[in-house]
């Protein structure tokens, strides 16, 4: 038969019991922070809410870095994109989105989307992994074209499929002032 004193030896010392709430708090804090990336979360948060009158979908959030959310660990992980962005009619700050622009992309394996994406009425385009011929591999080269107009990006895309990671509204990146919205 096991004596009472045996169980009392198993019990934690009284001083340790007083620290139980602290341990609980630390455990909870650790569990809640271990699955998040505060830098990533801040970037998503900085994008703000949806614009009034535009529902989530292919027309939303023009000019924002699409792949930030449309990625494996992003809030739109059910619609992952390889590349996505918005194309404008000009570099002017008050320019309009450019519809009907074809986006030509070639990755470092020589592969491209099976069908070149074309911008919608909000200037947005995106490519899903399944749209690619083969497995998409960065770096990539990209050009845009509409009718007789065409423009190729001078450098390649290194690793980020969001055009807006680098291309932002005029004046938003003083250190790289030649990088503005993607435009024809």
């Amino acid at each position: 038969m096991i004596s009472k004193s045996f169980f009392s030896r198993l019990a934690p010392p009284p001083g340790l019991l007083r620290l139980a709430p602290l341990f609980g708090f630390l455990l909870l804090a650790g569990a809640s922070s271990s699955c998040t990336d505060p830098v990533f979360d801040a970037q998503v948060e900085a994008l703000g809410d949806e614009a009034p009158g535009i529902a989530e979908g292919p027309l939303h959030r023009g000019g924002q870095p699409c792949v930030l959310c449309h990625s494996k660990y992003g809030p739109a992980s059910d619609h992952v994109f390889v590349v996505g962005g918005t194309i404008y009619e000009s570099a002017d700050a008050k320019t309009l989105p450019a519809a009907g622009v074809e986006v030509l992309i070639v990755d470092s394996g020589g592969n491209s989307p099976a069908t070149n994406p074309v911008t919608n009425e909000k200037g947005n385009f995106f490519v899903r992994p399944g749209d690619w011929s083969g497995v998409p591999r960065f770096p990539m080269r990209v050009a845009i074209a509409r009718g007789s107009q065409s423009l190729a990006m001078a450098s390649h895309i290194g690793r980020d499929g969001s055009c807006a990671t680098c291309h932002r509204a005029p004046g938003k990146r003083a250190e790289v002032t030649n990088i503005v919205w993607v435009h024809l």
Partner: peptide
Amino acid sequence: ERRCGTLDCHGQK
């Protein structure tokens, strides 16, 4: 510059 220095890679402060 060409292979590493794009803005989304090592072209960052």
